[in-house]
Design a protein around this nucleic acid. Structure first.
Lengths: 181, 181
DNA sequence: GATAAATATGTGCGTAGCGCACATATCAGG
DNA sequence: CCTGATATGTGCGCTACGCACATATTTATC
């Protein structure tokens, strides 16, 4: 046993776990993104935007920009696409400069399909595990996420595809906010 | 064609684990892709292409296409970019129609940086766990991946970002082939 | 051995998704 | 009331990608 506990990259098989999690994450996201594209016909951050807008009724262009990690203009054009697809409406915000983004009824339906597709995609990978193994995995992931040092915006970013119908108690550390707003 | 997603959506809190894994995978891939873009200055499947080409010395355009899940023309243009960046060389393949893709020395160096960046990104998320927890997680992920019903091409696709310097024994089910060729 | 089908690559052209720089409108604070 | 901060929209360009088509080589068939 070597005591090489220096900065991050430890030589030897200690990185096997990082490689494994990287491979699993890639497989998971491949399947999520493929399903999302089939549902909404668009890729990139567009599916996440639809989900985020659906969290609350006060979403603005600028909050969305920070959550998605896009440039301002990129976000405006993304909303343009959602509006032209009749999934989102731009309404006047409380503050006269803000735009309040709201889902249309078709937008809400698309969002539900999107969330279901995502859960289904991940579940199809997970169901090779026994219930006990899934429980164990859930505990570990909750610990992993719960111990991260995340800003409030980080949490929204990580949760930008999360299914609020399923995620009852988010493990991400926070003083108060759970998901939306 | 990947896994058929049948009606696996279980109502209730059984989907909490799927949502958690989805959120974690998103966080992991966000960090991997950000680091990859910083290293090679390009996004999309370009970093994966660099890694895949580095696995063996017999990679062709068409094999690469199937592993990355891109169209044929998309792959040709991707290789064009790698060539213009002086990271990859097109050499005559054994079969007169094939093109043998080879990393240049700078390409190999970029690939190493890419792999290190990826491991570092995932490790920074993982190191909030204790060694025992990491071990437990590794075992679960190995089981999860090892029980998947994957074709040979599926395995290459899942492993298209994998660090062959670290992944000594890939858990993905296979009769023989580990990584390249 | 000639010809058809399969395989592998390259190209013209268009599109989606995004960033930079700039312009405009509204709000907060002196 | 004026300056700066905030929030949005636009012109323009680029990257990454797919579709349809063209071309070269190998394999199969007669």
């Amino acid at each position: 046993m070597f005591f090489v506990r220096s900065a991050h990259i430890i030589p030897g098989m200690e990185n096997g776990i990082a490689n494994l999690l990287g491979a699993l994450s890639l497989a998971v996201m491949d399947r999520i993104e493929q399903g999302a594209r089939e549902v909404v016909g668009r890729g990139g951050e567009t599916p996440a935007a639809l989900i985020v807008i659906g969290y609350g009724q006060g979403m603005t262009n600028d909050k969305l920009r920070r959550i998605l990690g896009l440039s301002h203009s990129g976000t405006v054009r993304l909303v343009d696409r959602l509006v032209s697809d009749r999934l989102v409406e731009r309404r006047p915000g409380k503050d006269g400069r803000e735009v309040a983004l709201h889902l249309t009824s078709t937008g809400a339906a698309a969002r539900n399909k999107l969330l279901a597709s995502r859960i289904s995609a991940v579940t199809s990978l997970l169901d090779v595990l026994s219930p006990a193994e899934r429980k164990q995995l859930a505990i570990l992931i909750r610990e992993l996420l719960g111990r991260q040092d995340t800003s409030e915006m980080d949490r929204f970013t990580i949760c930008r595809m999360c299914d609020d119908r399923v995620c009852t108690n988010c493990p991400l550390p926070t003083s108060k906010g759970q998901h939306a707003r």
